[in-house]
Design a protein around this nucleic acid. Structure first.
Lengths: 158, 158
DNA sequence: GAATATAATGAATAATTTTGCAGTCGCAAA
DNA sequence: TTTGCGACTGCAAAATTATTCATTATATTC
C-alpha cells in the first residue's frame, strides 16, 4: 500500500473517531501518526475522499465522512432539450389563479421539472401527472408574465 | 412568516434544485428572487440550516442539504415518521388560497399522506407529485393556522 | 537503464468562509 | 415613554480552505 493510500485510510479513521474542526487540527493528528504533509495536500486528500466540513451540534463545524446515499455520484438529470419541450407541449389554459398545461403522454413531469427549475420566481410550484401539469403561480403575477416566462422554456408556447 | 423564515425556505429550495458552488453564487440566486443580504448573513443562514459545501462529482464543490437529521437536534422522542418528514421537507409558500410545499424527490406523496391523515380539519386535501405537494386549505383558515398545524407534523417547518 | 509521461507535493497565493463588533429594530416590562 | 433584552444584520478583519505554479517523486515504455 502506497504512502498516500495509507494516509487516506488514516484520515478516514481520524475523521470518523474525532471531532475535527479544521484542517490544521487534522494535520496535528496526522503528524502524531507519522504523516508529514502540508495543508495543501490535505485539502486535496479531503476532496478526493469527499470529506467535508459540516455545521455540527453546538455551533461548531465538524468534518464528516460522506454519507453513502448522497455520495453516489448520480449523473446530472439530462438537460431536457429545447426540442423535447416543444414536442411535448400541447396547450395551456388558465382558471382563476391556476394554469393547466396539457402535454403528450409521459412528458408532463419532465416539462414540470424544467418549469420548477427555471422560473421559481414566477411559478410557486407545479404538480405533474402523466400528461397534465397543474401550475400554481406566485401571487400578483399576471397571466401575461406567466406566458412570457414559460415561452422562454417552451418555444412554441406562443 | 418572517422575512428570515421565507429566506431560509428559499435557500433550501435553491440549494436542492441547483448546483451551487459558493456563497456568492447563491447570493445571486437569492437576489433574483428579491432577497437582499450579505455573504456574512448567508454564511450564518447556511450554518443554521446545516447546509454545507461538499466535494462533488466533477472536481467541483457543491452545497448540499443535510440528509441525516441528527437526533441530537430533536428535543423530544421523534415519532416514527418524524425524521423522514423533516428530512424530506424543503419549503412551503403560499399563493392566494393555496399552499405549495416542495420536498426532496420522492418524498411528496408520503408527506402529503401524513398531512391528509393528521390535519383533515384544516386541510381540505392535497395533491402530490414527485417533489411537490399542492395543499388546499379549508375555507376561512388562516395561513398562520396552517403553518402551526403543519409544524406539528413537520418539525423543522418553522 | 534512459527517456518520458504521470502523479504527488510544497510554497505561496487566491478564493472563500467565518466571526467579532457595533448598530438597528421590535417587543415587553417597568 | 423609557429601558432593557434578544434577534438580526452589515462591515471589516480574521480564519480557513482551495488552487496555481514549480518541482520532485513514481511509474511506464522503449
Amino acid at each position: 500500500m502506497s504512502v498516500k493510500s495509507e494516509r487516506l485510510n488514516t484520515i478516514r479513521r481520524i475523521v470518523a473517531q474525532n471531532e475535527i474542526e479544521n484542517q490544521d487540527m487534522l494535520l496535528d493528528f496526522l503528524r502524531e501518526e507519522g504523516f508529514d504533509l502540508t495543508q495543501a495536500t490535505l485539502s486535496r486528500d479531503l476532496k478526493q475522499l469527499k470529506i467535508s466540513k459540516n455545521p455540527g451540534y453546538a455551533g461548531i463545524y465538524i468534518y464528516m465522512l460522506p454519507n453513502n446515499i448522497r455520495t453516489i455520484d448520480m449523473p446530472q438529470r439530462p438537460t431536457p432539450n429545447y426540442e423535447f419541450m416543444a414536442e411535448g407541449f400541447l396547450s395551456i389554459e388558465f382558471s382563476g389563479q391556476l394554469a393547466v398545461m396539457k402535454t403528450r403522454p409521459g412528458h408532463a413531469s419532465a416539462i414540470a421539472y424544467e418549469i420548477d427549475a427555471k422560473a421559481p420566481h414566477i411559478i410557486l410550484g407545479t404538480v405533474a401527472g402523466d400528461d397534465t401539469i397543474l401550475i400554481v403561480p406566485r401571487e400578483n403575477i399576471s397571466r401575461r408574465q406567466i406566458m412570457e416566462t414559460l415561452a422562454m422554456i417552451i418555444p412554441n408556447l406562443k
